[in-house]
Design a protein around this nucleic acid. Structure first.
Lengths: 136, 136
DNA sequence: CAATCCACTTGCATTTCACAAGTACCTTAA
DNA sequence: TTAAGGTACTTGTGAAATGCAAGTGGATTG
């Protein structure tokens, strides 16, 4: 089975999204790459939600298989790998921003920075561009 | 345990989103309510992805618990229930639109209507407003 | 008033997940 | 040059979630 011949349950775009990141952990890994600048395996392990190591290995592999993440050796240390978002992964930014805004509105305990919400409400495109700038 | 005292793994907004709809089925139920006008239990069962009946019952209950969906008796038939999105559920529309656009861009098999993409690219706010109008 | 519809519930086998421990390769310091 | 520690996993095991099939109970229809 190649990457292009996987059997999806349907051809609905929401289902494609679900099959890519519809589980309890994948979006958190993407979040760490997108907003927290994490690059190494041990960085992801250290996040608040305490992902276990076999699940992390599995999700990074699947994200790589799906073209959302790439894995390369760290030029500074041959025993480390660097994970980064592909363009396809970076393109999830608007969806991630909308999810963040939704949670900030409906979860009283959320720790979303007020600056994020202010910018979101005032100028959404500017918010997206600000994060995009960090990818390059 | 009340609805407001659940123990989340963290107070990260992305984690809140994951805990609300981070599984293989919940977003598909929301999709059916949001874009396909489905209202009855049997309608959800009939969707392409073939959700099984115990999973559907569980997800509808959790969505109700989380304030995303409400359940009411059908005035036309006392043996039927009508499920609908709350304001909190409707507020997921921008995130759903972004996920749809992302999948349409990266899944060659997606059946997203070209009209959706055209409007998305030309005037995203208008697209959102168009769907919002269907909620009322 | 019997048959059917509708929304579930239950039981059970299979799959996935979480936690703890172990492994293999690489780097660093003596 | 070798031992200790770092890094990225893999493996084993029990627990939980899932998928499928069948059953239940109230409402409706003929």
């Amino acid at each position: 089975m190649t990457k292009n011949s996987k059997d999806l349950r349907s051809n609905c775009p929401i289902n494609f999204a679900v099959e890519t990141f519809g589980d309890k952990w994948t979006l958190l890994v993407i979040r760490d790459l997108m907003f927290k600048g994490k690059r190494h395996y041990s960085d992801f392990l250290a996040s608040d939600e305490k992902i276990s190591t076999n699940i992390l290995a599995d999700r990074l592999q699947k994200l790589d298989d799906n073209g959302v993440v790439t894995k390369s050796t760290d030029p500074d240390n041959a025993s480390k790998f660097i994970y980064s978002l592909t363009e396809k992964g970076q393109a999830l930014l608007p969806a991630m921003v909308e999810m963040t805004a939704w949670s900030a509105n409906y979860d009283s305990l959320t720790n979303t920075p007020s600056e994020f919400l202010n910018t979101y409400n005032a100028n959404k495109a500017a918010l997206i561009d600000m994060f995009k700038a960090q990818f390059s």
